[in-house]
Design a protein around this nucleic acid. Structure first.
Length: 890
RNA sequence: GCGGACGUGGCGAAACCGGUAGACGCAGGAGACUUAAAAUCUCCCUCCCUAGGAGUGCGGGUUCGAGUCCCGCCGUCCGCACCA
């Protein structure tokens, strides 16, 4: 009796039992209600970290809970196994990326197993194996056949360190997301997936995702960036001799003076450029325009640059401009007047100067804009610099003066003024009227423009899915016949020089053309690893050998009921997976529109940081170097390098005090990581699981602490003591209060787990545990112990299983049913009623539930404390909220 | 700059539809058991001038009553970023 729970022994024993009995293998043929619980699969980087532990524990609790509630649960695990770290390891250590990756998978799988996750390992997959990526190649060919894949010569983001192309999404502040190197622009022939075909659907589909965080939906919406507006053409003319920019700006543009058709621009001979097309979301401000601006790489700009060296020089200047946030912030708006004039479509006599401007983006809209300085800050800055007219066309209500003064553009609501037939309308009406007119007169049309670009999937890398295409000089890009799949990566490659080993492999790429049989070359680019993670959840649901998935089999499980992962995937991975699923639906392979019905993004695991100040040695004896060395730098210390004594923190084994820094995300650079494995060794899987579920709400960051894990360990031991001590005594008698508490706790935990609010469930379990400990022996107490065991079992399954067996139950607690809640047990017959005077609590009264209002009021007024407070004054008003409170107003 | 979230004890946090602020845990304190320690158990633990008063970032407002709703600030964090 009173033995300790031996976690190390029990963990291994029960994990073995679950494994052998395939307890958590999902049955495709089950007739039970189904639930698909999925956590984002890990990249096999080497070892699991606390973030993984938290992520998978949350999913595990949900999966185990739903099993106990009688559902057939699919809870699989696999490996997002392609990617650059494997190639980096190959370069650094001379080990093949496959060898490195598979070794990491073995290590991490063992680590995951030690945490006792209820995973269906029979469905394990790794994206780097041909039996996965071969099917991905087949899907790529299906999308290719459906016209959703195309090849385009395009400027790409080239990472000069990783020697590869990055998606726009992988460029952060002009730098590669992994290497941090400044990204260069390069022209390459690339494969693209037509995600923009689905842009509308991908925005509209968000509306149906009720169980997604609003934040993520908003981020996706902003990323897709749908804007509605007017796309229209300005006819171009050159300035007429003797006229000084005729009617430019027309601050008092009144009656439209008819004028002959503009003459073609003599400065663009034979270019066929007679108009410039612009896009605007504010057609209502057409009469406020004072210039047109095109991007530096716009065809008009390029055409002008051919004959005008000043223009060419300006374009060069624009290209040199940085693209980082800070640079953009401080960069001045610059323009080059081309001398061209654009004819205002609503007033043919009105011409606007055409500039090349550094703030116009070729990639968005048409690469050209018209400027309305009064109602766009950027345009205003530009107009002030080049002294262009600033005409007010939206009145803020109190000022209708035609000329706009000040340096802050008005972008809010208002009434249209100084705009002829638009005067007096609100913004939305004016937009509609202008679009209707443009469409009626044929010079423009209402359009939707997206920020989203097509998805470039080509990577000049070895460790990825080979793109199943063969290039033939005679036939062009020819898809590999499906019976030749998978296209397997060659094993004999070297990584001693940068670049793509597939490209310089002596034989791999030389193949006959599947179409004409002539000499041809294999595509040596591989697919972006985000393709791999765009359909793995389908393969988990159904994995036949002969095809990527079986449609009916997959549809039985999909969509994923609950997907859990880091918020860092809120845009890229989730958008691509949504697109891929819709693309499969589009080509008739799967009738699922949205892959993830429920999404939860969990917070990070954080830890205190520790540092000392360090002074570097001067590099030389020069004064500069000496001063340089005076600058102290922070030296970060690992939690293993410090001791905590008397509320102070010291460098381990010394009396040197250490500074405690901010609590931050665990990272190698700050040295504040905690490896889960030694913690599991010391405290057991249950304590670690309990800790990561406790205290912090799961969407928020979780600060790791030594004392926290010890607290969790104490709770596991406390549970064990409680259960063991109960084992001997089979008591009799009732304890209605305790019985009620069990039912209340059970229903509370159900709702907590369904809402993924594990911290609240943990608090309830502590309370129930304390209540049972304090309760005298009774039959109800014995039952309560059994209930507690069931309720904690999804969270701390090992101690629960051990106790379940010790108590002589048949079967596994993992297979046991969740306790049934009796609604009658949830009803209280007594309530505590608060008595307030002027809203301040003064007393409490205990009443039978549902006591009549006047009885409660009378009792409250008769209360000793209240009588003393009122000093005989009659209350002005008494508010009685049944079963809650009485408020006496004096 | 745009968009969003958040702000409650020493700390992580609870608080349902506006109705007893601080449940639960960590840290800390006092005591019990013990030769002693560990473990365990019991109690205390927002602040103050302790009759009582103040208190959920700050200032207003609505209400019988505000952590919760409204207006205006301040601060922290996240996403996007010259997006027309």
């Amino acid at each position: 009796m009173a033995s300790r729970f031996n976690a190390l022994k029990a963990d291994a024993a029960w994990q073995k039992v679950w494994d052998e009995r395939k307890t958590f293998a999902a049955d495709d043929l089950s007739t039970k209600p189904r639930s698909y619980v999925l956590e984002m699969f890990p990249y096999p980087s080497g070892r699991i970290h606390m973030g993984h532990v938290r992520n998978y524990t949350m999913g595990d609790v949900l999966a185990r809970f739903r099993r106990m509630k009688g559902m057939e649960v699919l809870h699989p695990m696999g490996w997002d196994a392609f990617g650059m770290p494997a190639e980096n390891a190959a370069m650094e250590k001379g080990v093949h990326p496959g060898t490195w990756t598979r070794a990491n998978i073995a290590t991490m799988k063992a680590q995951l197993k030690r945490l006792g996750f209820a995973l269906d390992w029979t469905r394990e997959l790794a994206t780097c194996e041909p039996d996965y990526y071969g099917h991905e190649q087949a899907l790529f060919l299906d999308l290719f056949a459906a016209g959703l894949v195309y090849r385009k010569e395009s400027a790409v983001n080239w990472d000069p360190v990783d020697m590869t192309v990055l998606a726009n999404e992988q460029v952060i502040d002009g730098r590669g997301w992994r290497s941090g190197a400044l990204v260069e622009r390069r022209k390459l022939s690339q494969w693209f997936l037509k995600i923009t075909d689905f842009a509308d659907e991908l925005v509209d589909g968000l509306g149906a995702l009720e169980h997604w965080p609003d934040k993520v939906k908003l981020m996706q919406e902003n990323w897709i960036g749908r804007s509605q507006g007017l796309q229209f053409k300005f006819l171009l003319s050159s300035p007429l001799p003797g006229r000084e920019g005729p009617g430019v700006g027309r601050p008092e543009a009144d009656a439209a003076v008819p004028r002959e058709q503009p003459t073609p621009n003599p400065s663009l001979p034979g270019m066929g450029i007679e108009s410039v097309e612009v896009f605007t979301t504010r057609p209502d401000t057409m009469f406020g325009s004072s210039f047109v601006a095109v991007a530096a790489d716009h065809p008009i700009a390029r055409a002008i640059a051919e004959t005008n060296p000043d223009a060419a020089a300006f374009i060069e200047l624009c290209k040199r401009g940085g693209t980082t946030a800070a640079e953009l912030d401080t960069q001045e708006k610059l323009g080059f007047d081309t001398g061209l004039r654009a004819v205002h479509p609503l007033d043919k006599a009105w011409e606007l100067p055409v500039y090349i401007a550094n703030f116009v983006l070729m990639e968005y809209g048409t690469g050209a804009v018209f400027g309305v300085p009064a109602h766009d800050q950027r345009d205003l800055d530009f107009a002030r610099k080049y002294d262009l007219p600033v005409k007010r066309v939206v009145s803020e209500g109190d000022d209708e003066a035609p000329v706009f003064v000040g340096d802050t553009a008005w972008t809010g609501a208002g009434t249209i003024v100084n705009s002829h037939f638009l005067d007096g309308m609100d913004i939305e009406d004016a937009k509609r009227v202008v679009i209707e007119r443009a469409e009626g007169e044929g010079w423009g049309k209402g359009t939707t423009v997206f920020r989203l670009r097509d998805w470039g999937v080509s990577r000049q890398r070895y460790w990825g899915t080979p793109i199943p295409i063969i290039h033939c000089d005679a036939c062009g890009a020819v898809p590999v016949p499906k019976d030749q799949l998978p296209i397997v990566l060659p094993e004999d490659v070297s990584f001693d020089i940068p670049g793509n080993p597939l490209d310089r492999h002596p034989t791999w790429k030389h193949v006959p053309c599947p179409s004409c049989g002539g000499d041809a070359r294999r595509e040596t680019d591989t697919l972006d690893t985000f393709v791999d993670s765009s359909w793995y959840f389908i393969r988990f649901a159904s994995q036949p050998d002969a095809k990527p998935f079986d449609r009916t089999g997959a549809e039985k499980w999909l969509p994923v009921n609950q997907y859990i992962g880091g918020v860092e995937h809120a845009i890229l991975h989730l958008l691509y997976a949504r697109f891929w699923t819709r693309a499969l639906k589009h080509i008739g392979m799967l009738d699922i529109a949205e892959p993830f019905a429920g999404l939860f993004t969990q917070g990070m695991v954080t830890h205190e940081t520790y540092w000392t100040m360090e002074q570097s040695k001067p590099a030389s004896e020069s004064l500069d170097d000496f001063l340089e060395a005076q600058v102290h730098t922070r030296r970060w210390l690992s939690p293993d390098d410090i001791d905590k004594r008397d509320g102070k923190v010291f460098l381990r084994g010394t009396t040197d005090e250490v500074t405690v820094g901010r609590v931050e995300k665990m990272s190698k650079s700050k040295k504040n990581t905690v490896d889960p494995e030694p913690i599991v060794d010391q405290y057991g899987a249950d304590a670690v699981r309990w800790f990561v579920l406790s205290d912090s709400p799961p969407e928020r960051d979780l600060p790791w602490s030594e004392s926290g894990i010890e607290g969790a360990w104490r709770f596991v031991q406390r549970l064990w003591r409680l259960i063991e001590s109960d084992d001997a005594a089979k008591a009799e008698g009732e304890d209605i209060a305790l019985r009620k508490l069990c039912h209340r706790t059970t229903i509370g935990i159900e709702s907590d787990i369904n809402a993924l609010q594990f911290n609240k469930a943990v608090a309830r379990l502590y309370s129930l545990c304390t209540a049972i400990e304090k309760a005298p022996p009774s039959a109800d107490r014995d039952e309560a112990v059994r209930t507690l065991l069931l309720l904690v079992s999804p969270m701390v399954p090992h101690v629960a299983e051990e106790a379940w067996a010790t108590a002589g139950n048949d079967g596994l607690i993992a297979d046991a049913a969740w306790p049934i809640v009796d609604p009658a047990m949830l009803v209280d017959d007594e309530v505590t009623i608060a008595v307030q005077v002027n809203g301040k609590l003064r007393d409490t009264l205990v009443f039978p539930k549902g006591a009549p209002k006047d009885a409660v009021e009378a009792a409250a007024l008769a209360s000793e404390k209240i009588v003393r407070l009122l000093e005989g004054k009659p209350p002005r008003k008494v508010i009685v909220v049944p079963d809650r409170l009485v408020n006496i107003v004096v």
